[in-house]
Each structure stands twice: as C-alpha cells, then as structure tokens.
Simulated assay, not measured.
Amino acid sequence: MSRGTISGGIVGLSVSYALSVTQTLNWLVRMSSDVETNIVAVERIKEYTEAQQEAPWEMPINQPNQNWPEEGVVEFNKYSTRYREGLDLVVRDIDCKITKGEKVGIVGRTGAGKSSLTLALFRIIESAGGSIIIDNVNISKIGLHDLRSRLTIIPQDPVLFSGTLRLNLDPFNKYEDAKVWSALELSHLKEFVSGLSNGLQFEVSEGGENLSVGQRQLVCLARALLRKTRVLILDEATAAVDMETDNLIQQTIGREVLVLDKGEIKEFDTPATLLNNKNSIFYGMAKDAGLV
C-alpha cells in the first residue's frame, strides 16, 4: 500500500464505526437524561421520609369534649412562630384575647404576619414560643383532626369539588334541607339556587368552573354558615365578590381591628377610635387607600 492511500476496506470499516459511535453517543445522552429525570423521584422520596411529621391526628388522652369550643374565646399568650427551624420569627410575642362573639379584623401591610396567624390557628406551622388557648384548651395539646374539624375558614381562593351543590355545602350529609336553604339565604345565594333547574342537586364541575368566582366564594360562605362553628376565620373572603355583596357581608364582620407590623401587635381598638388618631398605623393605611 503506497504512502497517502488506504484501502477501500479500511474506509468502509471507519465509516461503519463512525456511524455506530454516533448512535452510541446519542443513546448515552438519552439514558443520562432519563436517569437524571427519574432520580428526582428518588430524591423526593428521600426528602419526604426525612421530613418532620405533623403532630398526631388524634390524641385520645387529651381529646376535647364533643361541643368544644362552646364559646369561642381565643387567647394568644406571648405566641411566636416561624416557618421552619433556623428562620426568623414571623410572629413574635402576640398577646391578646378575643372574647366570646367578638369579631376582630387583622390588618397590616405585606409581611406583617396576618396569614401566619391563620396558619398558627390551624397548626400548619407550630409554636416557637407561647401558646394559643381556645376555651381553656391549649390547641398544641390536642390532635390535629380535633382542632381543624372544630374551626372554619373561608379562604381567599374558593375551593369547590365536582359533585352536587348540596354535596359541596354538606359533604357529610349532617343537615336537613331547611338548614341548607337557610344558609343559602344568609349568604345571598337562595334566589340563584332557586332559579336552577336542579336546585340543590345542581352539578358543580371540577373546581366550580361553571360558577362565577363570586358565586364560588358565596358557596364557601354558605358552607361556613351551615357549620356554625364558634371560631370562624376569613382570609380576605370578600375579595372576589362585587361591592354590593361585599357590603352585605361586611355588615356582620367589622367590629374591632388588630393592627400587625413586622409580626407584632401595634394597635388593637375599634376602627372609629383608630381613625380618630391621625398618628395611628391604621389611619395611615386608610389614608394610603384613599378611605379618609
């Protein structure tokens, strides 16, 4: 074989190997990507197995009586909490008492700790100091089911499930139709439901997509009114309804205002008293919103 030339057999072998290597490299890249994608599932399983578990669902030793809470007196005793170990406190040294039948609005700027107090009541986040007492029962000493089943929340984003309207209002079929209609009347939905061909058997689609956002929110309000729990939490519950309906609902809510700033209580009085004090944080917030 002369210098600078190669046989046809060597050329064919080289081309064959080159094509084979290209396919092998493609397969290697694809398999590496599949492994990287699938290993995420393993990482998540590992993370969940090492995550701190919630408190017991039920604690027979410290189970509250069937009618608890009977009055709905909520006390925060030097309560502090954080979202997880190592982070700064989001609520610190909250010390107040909400008496029987009292309606308190919690206000504050972004990051003041309003939502954190809601999470604390349901023990989504646990105490980092102090305690919350409801009708002389320390909520940290009872099971999560006993606590959460006795409180009611109307969230900002209404949650509905596919099924009948009655199922969404009374999922465990505990109440008579008359009480369901009464709750609908109080939530200003009775006329709308009466006009439906199926009434309470109206089929709600997944997520309540065949209802307007305002109607979904009112359904959540009716559900809360039907349960008649002594402790009711509203997380900007009227944000999605029209002004007229909002005014009707607000008439039964606003009595006193608790003002939070940087996780601490700064003011706690009636709206009129706070508005009369032009140096109050509440007055400043109302002024910024153009209400005064």
Rank of each mutant, 00 (worst) to 15 (best):
E71V: 08
P64T: 04
E47N: 12
N67V: 06
Q66W: 05
M59W: 08
Q52K: 15
P60D: 09
E75H: 02
I39S: 05
N38M: 09
S32C: 12
P64A: 01
A41G: 09
P69L: 05
P56L: 06
S32A: 14
M31T: 15
M31P: 04
E58R: 05
E75P: 04
V42W: 02
I39F: 04
E54H: 08
N38T: 08
K46S: 10
P69M: 05
S33Q: 14
V40F: 00
E43N: 11
S33W: 03
R44T: 07
W68R: 00
S33V: 13
N65D: 09
A51P: 06
R44Y: 05
S32E: 09
V29L: 13
N62W: 06
D34C: 10
Y48T: 12
M59G: 01
S32Y: 05
T37A: 14
V35H: 06
E36D: 13
P56S: 09
M31K: 07
P60T: 05
I45M: 15
Q63M: 12
K46Y: 06
Q63L: 07
E54N: 13
V42D: 02
M59N: 14
E70I: 07
W68V: 02
V74A: 00
W57F: 15
V74Y: 00
V42T: 12
E70H: 11
I39P: 00
G72F: 11
I61R: 10
E58M: 09
P69I: 05
Q52R: 15
T37C: 10
G72I: 10
R30N: 13
A51V: 14
A41S: 11
N65Q: 08
T37I: 08
Q66Y: 05
Q66L: 03
E70R: 09
N62A: 10
E58G: 11
A51Q: 15
P64G: 01
R30M: 12
P56H: 07
R44F: 04
T49F: 11
N67Q: 10
N65W: 03
E50C: 05
N38I: 05
T49L: 10
V29M: 10
E36V: 15
E75T: 03
I45K: 12
Q63C: 09
G72D: 05
T37Q: 08
V29R: 09
N38G: 11
V74C: 03
I61C: 09
D34L: 11
R44A: 03
D34Y: 10
Q63G: 02
E36M: 12
P56K: 06
V42Y: 01
W68T: 00
P69Y: 00
A55G: 13
E70Q: 13
P56Y: 04
N65P: 09
